[in-house]
Write a protein that binds this DNA or RNA. Structure first.
Length: 490
RNA sequence: UCCUUCUUAGCUCAGCUGGUUAGAGCACAUGACUGUUAAUCAUGGGGUCCCUGGUUCGAGCCCAGGAGAGGGAGCCA
């Protein structure tokens, strides 16, 4: 009748229990064993908090076979009285009266199917290979609780301001978004695709009757909705088939893309800055212990490094600094001047020296501006039009566009956005220059034909935000099951 | 895709100038102990030194090719 016991025993989450005054009341906890010390003390975690609860079994009254089954990773229920702990390190503990093991976890390394997590530090690389189990570690528990609260805070931020959450399509026939290589979506037989008379693949016979891909951005669709609701945002998966092998890129990632009618570039920057500070503050308030843990973890890790390579601030200080200070706003042209005049450039310490106006900034330049020169988040605006997308609003100088990138320390570009070009003629001219299919994009251009208005928007890479808030350094460690070139396990 | 570093026990790592039987900590097994905090103590088992080929009397170490991983760059969020 194990299932019967299971259903009537209502559990209390550990987060709630450790905040409860102990008075010997009977409680039930269900969770996974982290360690079992001294044949008596079980550290149980149920994911509700980074903290474990200590359950104390009387080994003299418990049969040895049962004790043997209390191993790291095993899932169990304990029922007993909540009492003040005699030991140091925790306020309350459970004096176990009854215990039920739901699932064993083999701990003998000589046997097959051994549970790979041990009560010790594992490398992030190793944990990445067992991504299906890494949630059960302190680090990944903290990361994914923070990720959840950041996502929730994003929705709350926009909801409080009257934005409409749009679900833009994941499958798209548009290939003109200009945001990189796309993943093809097809039901055609790849070994024997139907051909046209001229020998090309006949997509008329494909599922949608045309060539389709996974979306690389919801922006264009977002703009359409903004022309009715005023303020909208998307928050969904995005796919890029770039062969990028870095700590900042994923083939499948989540992006937040607000789009606002009647916003100019300044309004756009204000909103982006406000959003970032809002969600960071939310995480600091709701994930305090998780962030403290990660902050300490990072601090300990950096002790191994030489003094010069260590961070000036702890993670906690860095996040606090970020919400207490305005971001620095400079134009591309000003940034080029700063870089050109920097000692770093004069001493030729950049791999790519900064000379002429018009070239794109390299990672090392962005890092210099953020980490050395301003020492705070930086918003760069008004880039040369040649290095930015077709839809960005052209400035009166004929050379630059109303673009903005927000650069964060350690991350680089976390936000990319712009005021959009709402003037039909200028937009069409730019699209012709770039050989974009104007006819196919009639639906996008219709917003400029019918009731066009100044508007703006940006894209925020969600995983890059999670990277920053958790202090993790590899983007593959802030998404549950990362998709990168040559890797789609789990 | 380019550059670069790495791959040794289940995990984290050491391994000298190429030289006998490849080591440590943790984990595991057995025993002891029993208010521990990644418990402690004792004993023990555990290796395709990533793979293939080569140089050499002799290769974990040198050379070539391959595979996988990390970091950096490019592209970008």
């Amino acid at each position: 009748m194990a299932f019967f016991i299971h259903t009537i025993m209502k559990r209390t989450k550990i987060k709630e229990l450790i905040a409860t005054e102990p008075s010997g009341q009977e409680v039930t906890v269900k969770g996974w064993v982290r360690t079992f010390r001294n044949n008596s003390f079980i550290a149980i975690n149920d994911g509700s908090t980074i903290n474990n609860i200590q359950a104390v079994v009387n080994f003299e009254n418990t049969d040895e076979a049962t004790l043997k089954r209390i191993t790291p990773g095993a899932c169990l229920r304990v029922t007993g009285s909540l009492i003040a702990s005699q030991g140091k390190g925790q306020k309350v503990e459970i004096a176990v009266k009854e215990m039920e093991i739901y699932g064993d976890a083999e701990s003998d390394v000589t046997k097959p199917n051994v549970y790979p997590l041990q009560p010790k530090a594992h490398s992030l690389e190793f944990l990445r290979e067992i991504a299906h189990l890494r949630f059960r570690t302190n680090t990944f528990g903290a990361v994914f609780r923070i990720r959840h609260n950041l996502a929730f805070a994003v929705h709350q931020f926009f909801h409080e301001r009257g934005f409409v959450y749009m679900h833009t399509p994941i499958i798209t026939a548009s290939d003109a978004e200009g945001a990189g290589e796309m993943f093809r979506v097809t039901t055609l037989d790849i070994n024997n695709p139907p051909k046209t008379e001229t020998g090309e693949i006949d997509f008329k016979q494909d599922f949608f009757g045309k060539s389709t891909n996974l979306t690389v951005s919801g922006q264009l669709e977002g703009e359409l909705a903004a022309m009715a609701f005023g303020d909208v945002y998307t928050f969904g998966p995005t796919f890029r088939a770039e062969n990028s092998n870095t700590t900042r890129h994923l083939a499948e990632f989540w992006m937040i893309e607000p789009e606002m009618a009647f916003y100019d570039l300044n309004d756009n920057m204000d909103l982006a800055e406000e959003l970032l500070q809002y969600v960071i503050k939310y995480a600091l308030e709701h994930n305090r212990e998780d962030i403290e843990f990660l902050s300490q973890r990072l601090f300990d890790e950096e002790k191994q490094k030489p003094q010069t390579e260590r961070s000036e601030m702890t993670l906690l200080e860095k996040l606090q600094f970020c919400i207490d200070n305005k971001f620095e706003r400079v134009t591309y042209t000003q940034a080029i001047d700063i870089l050109r005049e920097s000692n770093h450039n004069k001493k030729k310490k950049f791999q790519y020296l900064v000379n002429e106006w018009g070239t794109d900034l390299q990672s090392e330049h962005e890092r210099y501006l953020v980490e050395k020169h301003f020492k705070k988040p930086v918003i760069l605006t008004d880039y040369p039009k040649e290095i930015k997308s077709f839809y960005m609003r052209q400035n009166e100088d004929g050379k630059t566009v109303r673009a903005m990138d927000i650069l964060f320390p350690g991350i680089g570009e976390i936000v990319g956005g712009s005021q959009r070009e709402e003037r039909l003629e200028l937009l069409e001219t730019r699209m012709k220059e770039l050989h974009l299919p104007i006819e196919e994009m009639y639906w996008y251009l219709d917003t400029r034909r019918f009731g066009a208005c100044p508007h703006a928007g940006f894209g925020l890479g969600f995983e890059r935000l999670v990277l920053f808030v958790t202090g993790m350094t590899n983007i593959r460690d802030v998404i549950a099951f990362p998709r990168t070139p040559k890797s789609a396990e789990f």
